[in-house]
């Protein structure tokens, strides 16, 4: 098992096509990150997230032969997760919400949108800003989460969302701009 732990994601993916047990190791590596990613972009309770995650892992397993090692395995896995979540919400005709972020995660987004010179004055401000972020369109919200909470670089976001770099940069810039505008509209000036 230790030998297997030393393998890269790509090597494990290759091995998993022949031996499902090796896929267990890949799941071990991605269980936590994918769980939190899904939690951040949806409003679902933990049980539902786990169900979704199982479906995602099975999808990843079925598509293992499609994986191209030119891409980071993590980006590819996140892409499958992203598409599956979108499909899920399309299926249940519901709009994903974003109020499942932890306070430190909200603050990461807030800091990205505003040039902060002082610490956020009070919790009330954070609550108001959360509402503004929740009201952002899904595509802006998700890209802000990927960039500032998941801390992915542009290349990774590009591979996850299958969008050109320019579009990713535009989404991030517009998302931040809309966030600031919403804060101005709501007279939020806590800094």
């Amino acid at each position: 098992m230790d030998e297997k732990n030393a393998l890269t994601d790509t090597q494990l993916a290759d091995l998993a096509t022949k031996n499902p047990e090796a896929f267990g190791l890949l799941m071990e590596r991605y269980q936590e990150p994918l769980f939190h990613y899904i939690r951040r972009i949806t409003q679902l309770p933990a049980d539902d997230i786990e169900d979704l995650l199982q479906e995602i892992f099975i999808k990843i397993y079925q598509k293992l032969n499609e994986y191209d090692s030119a891409l980071k395995f993590s980006s590819w896995a996140y892409r499958i997760a992203h598409n599956h979540v979108i499909d899920y919400f399309r299926r249940v005709s519901a709009r994903p919400q974003t109020n499942m972020l932890e306070d430190y995660e909200w603050e990461k987004i807030i800091h990205s949108g505003i040039h902060i010179e002082k610490d956020i004055v009070n919790k009330d401000c954070v609550e108001k800003i959360k509402i503004c972020i929740q009201n952002l369109p899904m595509n802006y919200r998700e890209v802000l989460i990927l960039r500032f909470v998941e801390e992915n670089d542009y290349e990774e976001i590009m591979d996850i969302l299958r969008k050109p770099k320019g579009s990713v940069a535009t989404l991030i810039a517009r998302g931040k701009k809309i966030l600031i505008e919403k804060m101005k509209e709501n007279n939020i000036n806590c800094f």
């Binding site: 998993a16 499902p20 047990e21 267990g24 799941m27 071990e28 892992f57 397993y61 079925q62 598509k63």
Partner: peptide, 17 residues
Amino acid sequence: LIQDTLNKIKKEHIAPE
């Protein structure tokens, strides 16, 4: 989750395409 998923893969004979 990991064991459940592996069990499901084996039980339902799911294989990579």
